[in-house]
Amino acid sequence: MNSFTFTQAPAVAAAVQDNLAHEDAAYIGGGTNLLDLMKENVARPTHLIGLKKTGLAAIESLPDGGLRLGALATNADTAWHPDVEKRYPLLSQAVLAGASPQLRNMATDGGNLMQRTRCYYFYDLATPCNKREPGSGCSAIGGYNRIHAILGTSESCIATHPSDMCVALAALAATVRVSGPHGERTIAFGDFHRLPGDAPERDNTLEPGELITGLDLPAKGFEKNYSYLKLRDRTSYAFALVSVAAALELDGDTIKDARLALGGVAHKPWRDPAAEALLIGQPATADTFRRAAAQVLEGAQGYGHNTFKIELARRAIVRALKQATEMTQRTDDNAFLNSNP
């Protein structure tokens, strides 16, 4: 780790001011990803701003029937929160599918949005990587790319966003609350993370100095029919090769409303409104689900080692929608999650 200074910010405004007063400053929530990147010399901030005392850890109901997750609420406190378990079980399930209990006790909800790709070339200082060092090239294209993206890629970068939680937040249409040098603003979840384009070094649309203060969930939680299906090389403590957050509102056998988002396939959580439109108003059958899956994967491109993800994602979407309809097995073979609806 490089040397740096550390201050514990007493409040949000002070944290933002402190950030602006330093070159290469970074906010630190739980630190589970940032400190790892600093140990690898991938991240080299010269000043860290602690957020523990900014009062952002609360989870509270909103007047419109929604729920606000404070940016400093831990992943564990979020997943086990009675309102999240009852009203947004899809979110609870996605959070519990990620990381380990120790990491979930440290990692914050705001930090989850800010975590960076686990592309092995991004972590390896000895190889070119446009995300780490703009203009140096992409080692994954033409290299070993089994875990890489199949949707929304560019010639500069085929990295994936690693989060499980964010896939559920995309499906649930959360809103990101942000505070910065120019005051407060909100960002629709789908607009928060970016596609790589020709600037893969930018993961999201935050402006310099801006701090995530919370996440607002709309009232509609799809608590009756949902599924977070995560497919990975082992059934616990591994990143997704492909994951699917499926949420349905059913009227008998007819789909009244639908949400569909994928993880492990793109530079951002991949929600597909066109596929959702193909589900709405249709019977909840395998044929309907297959049409939606075909829509999601329409522009998919494999890069060799990861080409299997196209068919894997297609089947995962069908299975997740079926599970959401029937409320049968919830996730992969994770017994803990399956036994706790």
Binding site: F6, G30, G31, T32, G50, Q102, N105
Partner: peptide, 16 residues
């Protein structure tokens, strides 16, 4: 254990 909750002490700064 920090306040009764398990964490990885390698990924946390003492000053936090």
């Amino acid at each position: 254990l920090v306040d009764g909750k398990r964490i990885n002490s390698c990924l946390s700064l003492a000053v936090m």
